Simulated scan of single mutants.
Amino acid sequence: MKRLARFFLAPLFLIAVTLLAVALTSQPAERPKVLAGFGDQPLVIAHRGGRGLWPENTLFAFERAAALKVDMLEMDIRRTRDGELVVLHDARVDRTTDGSGEVAGLTLAEVQALDAGYRWTADGGESHPYRGQRIRIPRFAEVLERFPEQPKVVEIKVPDVGMEEQLCALLEEHDQLDRVLVGSFYERSLKRFREVCPGVATSAGPTSVRLLVALNWIGLGRLVSPTYQALQIPERSGGLQVASEDLMQTALQRGLAVQMWTINEQPAMRHLLDMGAKGLITDYPDRALQLLGRSTRITSLNDR
């Protein structure tokens, strides 16, 4: 019986010692500079510049979102055939422009010849008010040049093509290392970006999110030492509830800013903010601003 007890107790003792060591050495994330100036106010983050209001991922959208005084601009980056970083969500240009084909198979000149306002409609296709308005897919460098002070969320859409180094170089060139929060659905892209651009804020990748959610579910979330500074998550995924008040509290204790995507209806916005969310990534930033009692008047516009 004593031998059987030792057989079970020894592994339990080792587990307990390991957990204690992890608890004693775990460190919360430090608040990054890109978020430091906001205090504790919930952030309004214009998803693709506010794709519900105007053509997504364009200078036109970013200018108007900035004039609304959103807190952050969210955007996606891909690479053209000739190696330029451009701001575009899809792998193909078909959904948002009058062209067709994969952006990776087109040159920058071919991409920028397309009408990026061509497909946008607010009434199910009855009208297309931004056609022929010279709205195009921008280079990422143009966004950095046009909005040097505006905090940005930047998503790397394609792994393993050197975008991490290229992104870091552009941020350094434009002195905006502390003006961005970088995310990706590819954990290896985030790992590589953190290696080549240490100190720049990043969000958790999908594996890191799943790990934190799982550890939190068994009561061990507070042992995590994050290599990231933000937790960008949907309310639900695959029919499962991701966001919870307990997860929000764990994230806060670990120094993480919880930013929810893509939240477009005000009741859901209010519910998530009440749970502890610190940011709303939304297609309709005007709705989030209104909910928070902030102005929805466009105050000024730069010349395009």
Rank of each mutant, 00 (worst) to 15 (best):
A251I: 01
E74Q: 06
S26H: 15
L171S: 07
R188V: 09
A23G: 12
I281D: 02
R139L: 11
G293W: 03
S300E: 11
S100W: 13
F62N: 01
V17E: 10
R270L: 10
L177I: 04
E265K: 12
R134A: 13
L280T: 02
M269N: 03
Q176P: 03
V161G: 09
T121M: 11
A268C: 01
T299A: 15
G39E: 04
L20E: 06
R192Y: 03
G105H: 08
D246H: 15
L291C: 06
H174G: 00
G221H: 05
K33R: 15
Y130R: 02
G238L: 12
R48C: 02
A116E: 01
A257L: 09
E187N: 15
P42F: 05
S127A: 13
V161L: 13
M275N: 06
K69E: 13
G83S: 09
T107F: 05
R81L: 14
Q259K: 11
R78L: 12
R222Y: 10
A5I: 10
R270T: 01
G101P: 09
G39S: 08
V180H: 11
S127R: 14
L12G: 15
L247M: 10
V44R: 07
L19Y: 01
V153H: 08
L291Y: 04
Q150A: 05
L231C: 04
A61R: 02
D90E: 14
D286R: 03
H271D: 13
P129K: 10
G125S: 05
Y284F: 14
F140A: 08
E173I: 01
A21Q: 06
Q241M: 15
W54E: 05
L106N: 08
L144R: 08
G125W: 08
R92D: 13
R31E: 14
A169C: 02
L68T: 00
L14W: 08
N216V: 00
V258L: 13
R3E: 02
R192D: 07
V44W: 03
R95H: 03
V103S: 10
E155N: 09
Q41Y: 00
V87G: 06
E187L: 08
M75S: 01
E145M: 02
A16D: 04
M260F: 06
Q41G: 03
V158K: 14
L88F: 05
Y228N: 07
R48N: 07
H174T: 04
Q249M: 08
D160L: 12
A257T: 10
S244A: 08
Q150L: 04
E142L: 06
R131G: 01
V200C: 13
D71Y: 00
R136M: 01
S184L: 11
E245M: 09
P267V: 00
A169N: 04
E126A: 15
V143Y: 04
E102M: 14
L9Y: 09
A61S: 14
E142S: 06
Q249E: 15
R51W: 03
D303P: 09
T121I: 06
L272I: 01
T227A: 15
